[in-house]
């Protein structure tokens, strides 16, 4: 339901009484409303939906998820799971 894209906050400012900012998405910048992530700091990542930052992206959790998948891979290898997918 909800296209949400991670981006990096590069600027924070007030506009018409609302916290706004610039967010960089892999090389393109867009003005985004930051009112719902008051704790966010420049350099941190957020997830943006229809021009609004809806949450701070927790970088540590992101790394944990990826590390967990790698661990599964190592386990599979040790258990000798047949690799059916070929390129």
């Amino acid at each position: 339901m909800c296209l949400g894209i991670p981006g990096k906050v590069t600027e924070i400012y007030e506009q018409q009484g609302i916290t706004m900012g610039k967010v960089d998405f892999g090389g393109i910048q867009k003005e985004i409303c930051l009112a719902y992530v008051p704790e966010i700091e420049v350099g941190e990542y957020t997830i943006v939906h229809v021009g609004f930052a809806i949450t701070r992206l927790d970088e540590e959790s992101a790394m944990e998820t990826l590390a967990l998948i790698d661990e599964l891979g190592i386990l599979e290898e040790e258990l000798g799971v047949p690799d059916e997918v070929s390129d």
Partner: peptide, 12 residues
């Protein structure tokens, strides 16, 4: 291009 890909992601 990465920037085109990014714009496409942003706009769906």
């Amino acid at each position: 291009k990465p920037a085109v890909q990014a714009a496409c992601e942003l706009l769906g």
